[in-house]
């Protein structure tokens, strides 16, 4: 028997069915709009996918450890609100808030702190992650809106730099997203802490018996998720130039969809960073393509829904094909 290092197990098939769906969708859009298959458009898609992708990278770590972070969008909102509070001055003449470079350390520190708070609350209060982050989703959003008084704050200065900067004609957020995804992948597959995180997600009971410091590892995962939320928030705000109450609203849904669609198991222990990236791209491509072909606004959600249903059927069908020859009855297959 000879084996090889298999960093992230049993996700291959799902990633392939995702590749197939993404290819199908792309070919469809390309045939309807000649501007779809275009280098400029690829740049757009990547740039628009960046916030989702970054959020999804953090969420992949959390879900791999058998957690969930519903508060990621609220963290994006609150971290940016805190950043403005700490490093913004309202300029009445320009109707905008001037910012200093301090917004970056403040937003990032806030993201890390809020994520850590999620983990600490889960650990100390012994709650399920779902309850904790459902609570902090509400709490963080309330705090964020409290700071901005639910108003729209136009921003200027260094806060815009990250979202708008370009390198070789490609938006810096794209590099950030790729970097985060690679870092996430290396972390999960190559570092001892990443492997321990997968172990905790795979079997919390074994983790205790093996002497893994589950609580510390969860802090790492949730802090990473908070960090990713804050970075996603910085990109969104940097690009659009406002901190608005809807910032990050519903982000948790998109991001969790991307992670699960990408083949990471909600029951922990199995993760696919590559799948997460692909699924983030798929979700963005749908919106992008719909606008390019000038679709009816009411059709957007129909297409989104149908593609989700196709993706899940493709996955179920491939699982069926794979296990067709096993004598074990379907109910007992994993």
């Amino acid at each position: 028997m000879s084996g090889r290092w298999r960093p992230l197990t049993r996700v291959g098939a799902q990633v392939w069915s995702l590749v197939a769906v993404l290819a199908l969708v792309s070919v469809g859009f390309a045939s309807l709009s000649d501007r779809f298959a275009d280098l400029d458009n690829l740049r757009n898609v990547l740039l628009q996918a960046a916030p989702t992708m970054i959020g999804a990278v953090g969420m992949t770590l959390v879900i791999a450890a058998r957690g969930i972070d519903l508060s990621i969008g609220a963290i994006a909102n609150l971290a940016l609100a805190l950043a403005l509070l700490g490093a913004g001055t309202r300029s009445e003449a320009a109707l905008a808030t001037d910012t200093t470079w301090l917004v970056y350390p403040i937003a990032i520190a806030s993201g890390l702190a809020l994520g850590t708070l999620n983990a600490v609350a889960t650990n100390v209060l012994r709650l399920s992650a779902l309850i904790t982050t459902l609570g902090t989703l509400t709490l963080y959003r309330g705090l964020g809106l409290h700071i901005t008084a639910a108003g729209l704050i136009a921003v200027r200065g260094p806060i815009l730099a990250f979202g708008r900067a370009q390198l070789w004609g490609i938006g810096v957020p794209v590099f950030a997203a790729v970097l985060m995804a690679v870092a996430g992948w290396v972390f999960l597959s190559e570092t001892p802490t990443g492997r321990r995180l997968l172990a905790v997600g795979g079997s919390p009971r074994s983790a205790v018996e093996t002497g893994l410091r589950t609580e510390r590892l969860l802090v790492v995962a949730y802090a990473a998720s908070g960090l990713c939320g804050a970075i996603a928030g910085l990109i969104l705000v940097g690009r659009v130039g406002v901190v608005n109450p809807d910032l990050g609203y519903g982000m948790e849904f998109t991001v969790i969809t991307a992670v699960v669609l990408g083949g990471t198991s909600l029951f922990g222990g199995r993760a696919s960073m590559f799948g997460t990236v692909l699924a983030s791209l798929l979700l963005t491509t749908i919106d992008n393509g719909m606008t390019l072909i000038g679709a009816d606004p009411y059709a957007y959600d129909v297409v989104r829904g149908v593609i989700l249903l196709i993706a899940v059927s493709a996955d179920a069908a491939s699982a069926h094909m794979r296990s067709r020859r096993s004598p074990v009855i379907p109910e007992l297959r994993a």
């Binding site: 628009q48 659009v240 608005n244 910032l247 919106d287 992008n288 390019l292 072909i293």
Partner: peptide, 14 residues
């Protein structure tokens, strides 16, 4: 406004 941004970007692309 974030979605308005993406929409404008995509429309300008097309």
């Amino acid at each position: 406004p974030q979605k308005a941004l993406d929409g404008t970007e995509n429309a300008l692309q097309a």
